[in-house]
């Protein structure tokens, strides 16, 4: 037991992962600070902005007191941070409802859409990317390369509207508006979100496939792959035994990057399909300048994004044999 402990402490990977985690935590703190200061920096006073120029001074003062705008900035930051940690996000300016209530269900919806897409897109992208790398410069590779290039060039709304025109207007297979409700059965939910899911899959698939292909090709060009071939190792064994363990780090990165994109990039797709997710709420709140909601949803997105990148980095470190087995 103690040997395991000393191995952990002596291993440089422990130190590196620790450092990376510390940096991640620091980044989150700075981000929360920036989000807070950003809202503070609003030209004019939040109270005036909300109540209008002609509001009575007493009303403004009362409002300021309610929002604790009369306290010094750093006090308010730490109070805010403490509340956020406990899940108290304050009230929406527009509707007056508690933000956590607004956000909770929508965030779940966003995760549901992103998760479903990930389940389809990740395995598909890895397989296609691997095939394109293995059959490099054949017609298969060229077809995949041209179609993914096209797919990454299309704005999401273009893909979405084409799908709507085809599958919803012309053939009426799927609804063009994905308004799901709380008590829908899973299958109905899945049917409802088919179009946004396909849209996202197409966009993410293209990115992920291209990156997977590049990562595998990079590894396949290394001398030890040639050495394995000259040892008479079979093709598939080379792929699984020699190429994959060394392509793991870049592939983990590819997946994390695209997961992050999925959670964050759903905004446009949610708006197109009027999907009740966090992205749509954010866009709505930005147009209404409902700052507390913007603040809260922005923070949630940022935390998810940083968290995913952090996980990817840590996993990539763990997959590096030089770090796992130090000198």
């Amino acid at each position: 037991m103690t040997r395991v402990m000393t191995w952990f402490i002596k291993n440089p990977i422990f130190k590196m992962v620790g450092q990376r985690l510390a940096i991640g935590l620091g980044t989150l703190l700075v981000i929360s600070g920036l989000i807070f200061v950003g809202v503070e920096a609003l030209p004019g006073d939040l109270a005036e902005a909300v109540l209008g120029q002609n509001a009575l001074p007493e009303t403004v003062a009362a409002f300021r007191a309610e929002l604790k705008l009369d306290l010094p900035a750093h006090t308010r930051y730490f109070t805010w941070l403490g509340e956020v940690m406990q899940g108290e996000l304050g009230n929406s300016l527009a509707s007056g409802k508690p933000i956590s209530e607004l956000i909770g269900w929508r965030f779940k919806n966003t995760l549901f859409l992103a998760g479903t897409t990930a389940l389809v897109a990740i395995p598909l992208a890895l397989i296609l990317g691997m095939l394109a790398a293995l059959y490099r410069d054949t017609w298969l590779d060229r077809c995949l390369s041209i179609s993914t290039l096209a797919a990454i060039s299309f704005p999401e709304f273009f893909v979405a509207y084409i799908l709507i025109t085809l599958l919803s207007v012309k053939f009426a297979l799927f609804p063009s508006i994905s308004s799901i409700t709380r008590d829908m059965p899973l299958m109905v939910k899945l049917h409802t979100i088919t179009l946004p899911c396909v849209t996202l899959t197409l966009v993410v698939l293209a990115h992920m496939m291209r990156m997977t292909r590049a990562a595998i090709i990079n590894v396949l060009d290394l001398p030890f792959i040639e050495m394995a071939r000259l040892k008479g190792i079979s093709k598939w064994r080379i792929i699984f035994n020699h190429a994959l363990p060394n392509a793991l780090a870049p592939i983990i990165n590819v997946i994390a990057l695209n997961l992050a994109y999925l959670v964050v990039g759903v905004v446009v797709v949610e708006v197109v399909f009027v999907y009740p997710g966090l992205g749509q709420l954010l866009v709505d709140s930005v147009s209404k300048r409902d700052l507390p909601v913007v603040q809260a949803s922005g923070l949630i997105f940022a935390v998810t994004y940083v968290g995913l990148n952090l996980t990817a980095d840590v996993l990539a470190m763990m997959s590096n044999p030089r770090l796992r087995h130090p000198q």
């Binding site: 950003g38 809202v39 920096a41 905004v267 954010l282 940022a302 940083v306 990148n309």
Partner: peptide, 21 residues
Amino acid sequence: VDIVMAFPPLIFALMVLSVMG
């Protein structure tokens, strides 16, 4: 740069736009 890139770009832009108009 690390800090700016730690924000998802679209979210960063949306937040600034919400504050600055």
